[in-house]
Amino acid sequence: MDDLIKIYVTDLDGVKHCIEAPTDMGLSLMEAIKANELQIKATCGGMALCATCHVYIKSDHLLPTMSEDEEAMLDDAFLLGIPHSRLSCQIYLKPELDGLEVQLGENTAV
């Protein structure tokens, strides 16, 4: 399928997984990780309200600009300013993100 992209996710044990995700379903990175049955807490379900889907971005893909909500949440969770930190629930999958590499943050532990 044309609209599938590959994403590389390194879990908390340091194991790298390659997941495939469609870009035509309005999925966030967090949802794609969850759908592939990798462990990610993601308590609030995608509202940028808990920071338990925190990831470090390892590749240099151009990502959507951080919203005020995401920035405030990262700040509350003491993660703002820690390089390459994003909330995976706020990154919506699109073809340009093919090959994206991320590492799960400590807060994602279930």
């Binding site: 005020e68 909500d69 920035e71 405030a72 700040d75 703002l80 300013g81």
Partner: peptide, 14 residues
């Protein structure tokens, strides 16, 4: 209180 100091790491509030 006698005095209140609000410390915030950013410049915008939510």
């Amino acid at each position: 209180a006698k005095s209140v100091t609000l410390v915030h790491r950013r410049t915008t509030f939510r």
